[in-house]
Simulated scan of single mutants.
Amino acid sequence: MDGAAHTGDRLSDAPVRVSAEYQGMPGDIARGRELAREFLARVRAAQGAAVSDRAVEVVQLVVSELLTNACKYAPGPSLVDLELTGDRVQVTVWDSAPVLPVPATADPGRIGRHGLEIVMAVCESFEVHREPVGKRMRAAVGLADDLTSTTTPLSHPA
């Protein structure tokens, strides 16, 4: 192994799920995208689920953006869970920072800090929940090429 913080994943029968832990090390974001790509390939093969190429790209993008935020703004470990729930994938990222993310005001001149805007634009839903330690961000991505779905506004349930 190359010393990566990725601690492995586990795949259960039902529901189909995979999890990995990261430590904010170089390469974690790429490993997170690889985890998503491999998970969806297994969903296609083992479950016979119809997973569009667009869904594979969107899930990788969402994992990348949420894991980047965790690595950038939260000290310590982060966890990524991917779970097949019907015709969608739930992407969940936990990190140790209690501060809830807030989308920045639209500014075409701003360089960077667009990750949350991107996630909210491409997902069917996005939620953030405070945890006893840190927070849990959850996004749902449809497996089909349904471009008519809308994103649920960012919610911060108490």
Results as ranks from 00 to 15, higher is better:
Phe39Pro: 03
Gln60Ser: 11
Arg42Thr: 10
Val59Asn: 02
Glu21Thr: 15
Ala4Thr: 08
Ile29Phe: 00
Ala97Tyr: 08
Trp94Glu: 11
His129Thr: 11
Arg10Pro: 01
Arg44Val: 11
Val16Cys: 12
Pro26Val: 01
Pro15His: 03
Glu131Cys: 14
Ala55Pro: 02
Leu61His: 04
Ala106Gln: 10
Val51Ala: 07
Asn69Ser: 06
Thr68Asn: 07
Thr85Lys: 14
Asp28Trp: 00
Ala50Thr: 10
Ser149Trp: 08
Ala49Leu: 09
Ser64Asn: 10
Thr151Glu: 05
Lys135Trp: 05
Ser96Tyr: 08
Asp81Tyr: 11
Leu100Met: 07
Tyr73Asp: 07
His6Leu: 13
Gly112Ala: 03
Leu66Arg: 04
Ala5Glu: 10
Gly86Glu: 06
Gly112Val: 06
Tyr22Trp: 04
Gly115Phe: 02
Glu57Cys: 07
Val91His: 01
Val62Phe: 03
Leu79Cys: 08
Arg10Tyr: 12
Glu34Ala: 15
Ala106Ser: 07
Val93Tyr: 01
Leu11Trp: 09
Ala46Cys: 13
Gln90Ala: 15
Ala4Val: 08
Pro98Trp: 07
Ala30Ser: 12
Val93Ser: 00
Met1His: 13
Thr68Ala: 10
Cys123Gly: 05
Asp95Tyr: 05
Met120Ile: 10
Ala144Asp: 13
Trp94Gly: 06
Ser64His: 04
Arg110Trp: 03
Val122Lys: 00
Ala70Val: 06
Ala41Met: 08
Ala97Ser: 15
Thr7Gln: 12
His156Thr: 12
Ser19Ile: 13
Val99His: 09
